[in-house]
């Protein structure tokens, strides 16, 4: 583990340098694992029975918990957003969990979290425009035309604060674990870091994934009403 994001490979496409960093490689590794898991679940889905057992139990529990949470936060009318945010939740959670195995968490790079937050912002604009048409556009000039820049800044600061929150939490965990691995002798690196990993990766990762998804759902619901 390292503080800086390592640059693995530099592509040269038409005179433009494209950097393949550690973040991109780790993102693809996590994506491959998640896709393999999804295909595995899809194959298992054919042999599902009315009375669940084994793997089916686990999958049904996860989906039911998420469904009740998302329907609670979104309402019936907007429930078509729920699958995308389950993907985001799974990605954020697994990216912080895989940093236990020495992969640098992709969410400890601002580019990843800002991309996720920007997707939430786009969904928010899309939802607002789809459900309220021009009343949504009118809400930007709400009390007065003079308030347009203020409203725009208020909307655009949402993805920035959301992405910085996730990024800061993941980066602080990475820094503390790097300091621990760098400062302690080799004998202290067996067993004891488990507690740090459990606290900074699993607990904070789950909490921040929950908060990220919850805030996005809240913004989307506010935009549609």
């Amino acid at each position: 583990m390292d503080l800086n994001i390592k640059n693995i490979w530099v592509l040269n496409i038409g005179g433009q340098e494209v950097w393949i960093t550690e973040t991109i490689v780790n993102t693809w590794i996590i994506m491959l694992i998640l896709i393999a898991l999804a295909i595995f679940v899809r194959i298992k889905l054919r042999s599902f029975k009315t009375v669940p057992e084994g793997v089916q139990n686990v999958i049904e529990t996860i989906v039911e918990i998420y469904d009740s949470f998302a329907l609670d936060a979104l309402g019936d009318k907007l429930s078509y957003h729920a699958p995308w945010f389950f993907t985001v939740f799974a990605f954020i959670l697994s990216s912080s969990i895989f940093s236990i195995y020495g992969l640098r968490a992709p969410t400890a790079d601002w580019a990843t979290t800002f991309a996720l937050a920007l997707a939430s912002l786009m969904l928010m604009f899309y939802t607002g425009f789809r459900h309220r048409k021009f009343a949504y556009l009118k809400s930007f000039v709400e009390p007065n035309i003079l308030f347009l820049p203020l409203n725009l800044i208020g909307e655009l600061s949402k993805p920035i604060s959301m992405s910085f929150r996730l990024f800061g939490n993941m980066l602080s965990g990475t820094i503390i674990l790097t300091l621990y691995y760098g400062l302690t002798p080799y004998i202290a690196q067996i067993g004891i870091p488990i507690f740090f990993h459990a606290f900074f990766d699993v607990l904070f990762g789950a909490l921040q994934a929950y908060i990220f998804v919850m805030l996005s759902l809240m913004y989307i619901r506010n935009a549609s009403e």
């Binding site: 910085f164 929150r165 908060i211 805030l215």
Partner: peptide, 15 residues
């Protein structure tokens, strides 16, 4: 949890 996250923002900015 949501209000804790919002209150945490300023601390994260400082960090």
């Amino acid at each position: 949890f949501v209000s804790l996250a919002i209150a945490e923002t300023s601390g994260i900015y400082g960090l």
